[in-house]
Design a protein around this nucleic acid. Structure first.
Length: 600
RNA sequence: CGGGGCGUGGCGCAGCUUGGUAGCGCGGGUGCUUUGGGAGCACUAGGUCGCAGGUUCGAAUCCUGUCGCCCCGACCA
């Protein structure tokens, strides 16, 4: 390809829309253009990158024996109603774009394809002899993100590889899951990315085991906690840890006047308590798809933070299917109660009377009371007295009518906490960009959509399923986030739009043009992805653009052209070599050979 | 959805407080000079100031409404 024919438009100034380096650089270097909020055009350079990423993904998927397909993006609501996800994905803050067609049928634009592929499996898979089977596709997905941001990182339309595996038993599922994990590690390595595999929450997808692959980068939206010994890594949403020991409280039962001390911080500051001696009571409201709204009282040790993902999962498993899926979890404010004055916010105790809910239309009449393990384990503690400006000191669970609620793991693990597997290890925080996620789904979808097969005993049973995603467009941008410098992008060779840019320093010099054209032909014949910068620009402009674009190698044909001397520059290291064409080209070809296999 | 901000030539911005015939940088075009690190000079094209209403002799500027976008939060394969 010749730059003169590439429709290359680079920007000298940073675009106003972009916040993080990768987004700025992709726009400045002419890779992407925004069409609407969260919707981007992939320009020719970007499309070349995406095709290279896709090719690697495809090779590795094919290598596991997975079969490539292409499934519809427009999907009938009926399928999603059968899996029970339609309401959760469309109502309220649901993320599925949905529409009604001219026949009044409801349809959604696929954010994922479990329903479609499971329905297909129900059609196609009948016998254990056909198993295991894995289908995958690389295609555009849609999600009506509440707040799109960071270019391709969180866009409303994006390219994803998704794969779905079907099995006769959980052991076979686990085997494929492990093969996929290995394939994922190869894919990211080949793309030149440093990634971290972490334990993850399964979220709205459901299922048991689940791992995320994180590209480590400061701009990452996820917080990852890892142990120093490398044995444990988890998304903070999911991470477990040992909280610091609570400070014992030596105090007899008493009431305490605490005017204006509605926060743990103020309370401790005024009376010299340690936060771990206090009990924090959170008042929340959980809304379910079936329309029920359950008020919650959640007890945490005062120095701990709530992990909403854990709470959501706990609620879902407690309520089971009866109330439908959990739609939202929000603070319960006094305005939602029949008698707002009954609520001494900031002074709540775990024994807050259900009577405060009386006369509140739409709410369940009793609190669901939960406690984190650290709260349940407290000896004597300080907590609100359920009346304004008063706390109680020296309270104990089980003393009198004060019952400890059901205990669950509800607290957020923090950097600095001790690790569960080895208390001498501390958790550290890293930011990450999620580029892949693998799940053992189990039978959630196959049961809901009646995808059954006949086993060796001649009996029908539901298929065991796994699903495996890679955000292809997000991965490409994450690569930039991980590989850039002050001058621009520094693509890993394997996914760079071109491997080499051949710069004619002065396009007016016939000697330079002649040599460059000859090299252009020879390098292409040798299988190198060459971009020829044949523009009538000054050399400086072409050098700047080459660096901004991030092409891994630059070969400059300039004043040495008459004697066959050229200059070879490596983008990543900045290393320059000047010399006769022959040796430099051989050196280049050798290096490329290695670099194409992965890494920089 | 809550909070904050911005819409002015293709891009980045000033002008708005205090109303008076729209400006700067980059980019585009033409010509001359320059030619290995985002060149110089000259000329030139390009804007109903997001949109709609209102106030006024007069609105980019003041008022009302509306649409779009960005940031923080909630949300999130």
């Amino acid at each position: 390809m010749r730059v003169s024919r590439l429709l290359l438009v680079t920007l000298r100034e940073d675009p106003a829309e972009a916040e993080i380096p990768s987004h700025r650089l992709l726009v400045r270097a002419g890779y992407i253009r925004r069409v609407a909020s969260g919707i981007y055009a992939y320009l020719p350079l970007m499309w070349r990158v995406l095709r290279k990423v896709s090719a690697i993904v495809r090779e590795e998927m094919d290598g596991t024996g997975a079969l490539e397909t292409l499934l519809p993006q427009l999907q009938p609501a009926e399928l999603w109603e059968r899996s029970g996800r339609w309401a959760g994905y469309t109502a309220g803050e649901g993320i599925m774009f949905h529409l009604v067609d001219r026949q009044d049928r409801s349809l959604g634009l696929g954010p994922t394809h479990e329903e479609v592929v499971t329905a297909l499996a129900a059609d196609l898979l009948r016998s254990y002899r056909q198993l295991p089977a894995t289908l995958y596709q690389i295609q555009t997905k849609f999600r009506d993100e509440i707040r799109p941001r960071f270019g391709l990182m969180r866009s409303r339309e994006f390219i994803m590889k998704d794969a779905y595996s079907f099995h006769a038993n959980p052991a076979d599922l686990a085997a494929t899951y492990n093969e996929m994990e290995a394939a994922y590690r190869r894919i990211f390595k080949r793309c030149g990315l440093q990634t971290l595999a972490v334990e993850a929450d399964s979220g709205a997808i459901g299922g048991s085991a689940s791992k995320e692959f994180m590209v480590t980068a400061d701009a990452g939206e996820d917080l990852v906690l890892t142990s120093g010994d490398g044995l444990y890594a988890a998304n903070q949403e999911r991470a477990e840890s040992l909280a610091p020991e609570a400070q014992p409280l030596e105090a007899d039962l008493a009431e305490l006047a605490t005017p204006g001390q509605a926060s743990i911080e103020a309370l401790c500051a005024a009376h010299g308590f340690h936060p771990s001696q206090t009990l924090k009571v959170l008042l929340l409201l959980a809304r379910f798809a079936g329309g029920r709204a359950q008020p919650l009282l959640v007890c945490l040790r005062g120095d701990q933070q709530l992990n909403e993902v854990k709470l959501t999962n706990t609620l879902s498993s407690l309520q089971g299917e009866a109330w439908g899926s959990l739609l939202t979890l929000e603070p319960l404010d006094a305005g939602q109660l029949g008698d707002p004055k009954g609520l001494p916010l900031g002074y709540l105790g775990p024994d807050l009377d259900d009577a405060v809910l009386a006369g509140s239309p739409g709410l369940e009449p009793k609190f669901l009371r939960l406690a984190d393990h650290t709260a349940a384990a407290l000896g004597r503690f300080v907590c609100g007295a359920n009346q304004p400006d008063r706390h109680r000191v020296g309270l104990e669970w089980g003393a009198g009518p004060l019952a400890c609620p059901q205990a669950h793991d509800l607290r957020a693990a923090q950097a600095g906490d001790r690790c569960c597997h080895d208390p001498s290890q501390e958790l550290r925080a890293t930011r990450g960009i999620e580029v892949g996620h693998i799940f053992q789904l189990g039978r959630k979808y196959s049961e809901a959509l009646s995808a059954r097969f006949t086993n060796e005993q001649g009996q029908e049973e539901a298929l065991w399923m796994g699903c495996y995603g890679i955000g292809v467009s997000r991965l490409a941008q994450a690569a930039v986030e991980q590989h850039h410098d002050g001058a621009g992008i520094v693509w890993p060779v394997a996914i760079a739009p071109f491997e080499l840019v051949l710069v004619i320093a002065s396009a007016q010099e016939p000697l330079q043009v002649e040599l460059a054209e000859r090299l252009y032909g020879e390098l292409r014949a040798a299988g190198v992805d060459v971009l020829l910068d044949d523009r009538a620009e000054r050399a400086g402009v072409k050098f700047k653009d080459a660096e901004l674009l991030g092409i891994p190698w630059r070969l400059v044909v300039g004043r040495g052209a008459a004697t066959g001397v050229v200059e070879l520059v490596e983008r990543a290291s900045g290393e320059k070599q000047e010399g006769p064409v022959g040796p430099l080209v051989s050196h280049l070809l050798e290096r490329l050979q290695l670099q194409r296999l992965g890494g920089l």
